[in-house]
Nucleic acid binder design. Sequence first.
DNA 1: CGCGAACTTGAGGCGTGTCAACCCCTGTGG
DNA 2: CCACAGGGGTTGACACGCCTCAAGTTCGCG
Lengths: 255, 255
Amino acid sequence: MNRPVVQPVFRALHLASCNVACSDCNLREVCLPVGMSRADLEKVDRHLVTERRPLARGETLFQVGDPFNALYAVWQGSFKTCISSRDGRDQISGFQMAGELLGLDGIGSGRHQADAVALEASQVCVIPFHALEALSRELQSLQQQLHRIMSREIVRDHGVLLLLGSMHAEERVAAFLLNLTHRLRARGFPDSPVQLRMTREEIGSFLGLQLETVSRAFSRFHAQGLVAVKHRQVQITDPAGLQKLLGGSEATAGL
Amino acid sequence: MNRPVVQPVFRALHLASCNVACSDCNLREVCLPVGMSRADLEKVDRHLVTERRPLARGETLFQVGDPFNALYAVWQGSFKTCISSRDGRDQISGFQMAGELLGLDGIGSGRHQADAVALEASQVCVIPFHALEALSRELQSLQQQLHRIMSREIVRDHGVLLLLGSMHAEERVAAFLLNLTHRLRARGFPDSPVQLRMTREEIGSFLGLQLETVSRAFSRFHAQGLVAVKHRQVQITDPAGLQKLLGGSEATAGL
DNA sequence: CGCGAACTTGAGGCGTGTCAACCCCTGTGG
DNA sequence: CCACAGGGGTTGACACGCCTCAAGTTCGCG
């Protein structure tokens, strides 16, 4: 890797854009190239994912109406996606962490249908969509993976529908916490204290609740010994107890 | 095509499975093959859509856990799709009418993740998924169309999220009615009296409301002169008034 | 004609939203 | 290093929208 002498700020950018290779990425088992052969992976490296983009906390990756050119895979950090109707109502449609794809909602119309905002300092891999379509006509493994990812996004949304349509406040918050820890564990994070990256208001927006209701749910869980909450530090001390609040259901996998 | 002598009930089945051709279908402008060339359409006819399946009112097309083999395009009639968690909670995730695709949620896991039930006597075109993937590697137009459809399904779900997460009961019902009439009009139905195919309870399940709440919303709309409701016959007399209930927003396109 | 399902309407209670006060943490500037 | 401002979070009191339960009506169908 060549490493020219540059000022720190540019150096960071430069380093980020070097060495973008799915085949070396430790997310390859949870990201786009799940289950692809070595040979196919190399084609992906060469033709598909060549750029990585860093974002500061609060920075917008894309917003409603932006022309759609690429999908983005979260490489580091986390994001929220917000949708809004023109009368000012708005809502967070999901939180994305490492290995998850952003931008799928832009394919249908050629324009992004949501805002994507970094919740912390983050980096995304840029996947130009025309290249993705071209390569997935060539590689069946890539084609199947893309279809699976889109389908799972639909199933995830249906899970949120179920949550918003039929669960009470405490059930929603419990489902949210369990889902979060499931996803973190799947990515190899220790499931001990979780550092929330979003505010109570953002959690509430996602769950269709007011921020006070979210806060009260946390407090009650704390009082019942289910979790230890301190600001954004959350430690689940009784996962089974939280699960029981959901009627024993485990259908929290896909939020 | 051979036409054996059979009893009427089987004959109906047989006739239904003849003459399945997207190129002749009057839904081709709203269904899977939107915008495809004549030549590509013929390949679709030959290799992809060869079977049509009739269903009686209340009959199940597929249910949760069934192996996923095919997508289904609604040709006639309408469907509901239901999701459920194992503690008995369940919810309708959508209503599908002519030209809309069923089964996208099965791609990711190889098993259907919802129940699809006919709301009236209906027919669907069967689209074997392995054949769809194979042909869409060959035809860019088909590939793009599939991606667009899946993306729009995601956007639609996000619209429902917004509805469930941020709207009051009457707003939800108003959005539901407007969305229904939009879709019917797009399919060439006269937008005068609409015949609902679902019960109040089903509407409520979809909107995250109790059936009584839906009924009361209808009654109030009636009293305000916005609609003329008589059982399942609904006539929107003041679309602009309904729209105003949504804060003037027109973000109802994608329910 | 009579039964059951679907629908309507009313009364009352509960869960959240709303509003408000207060606290805690962080970061900034003197 | 401390003071202070401001955003984020917690907690309480109250109101209100929707759920729940119940009774009665209409429609569809055998």
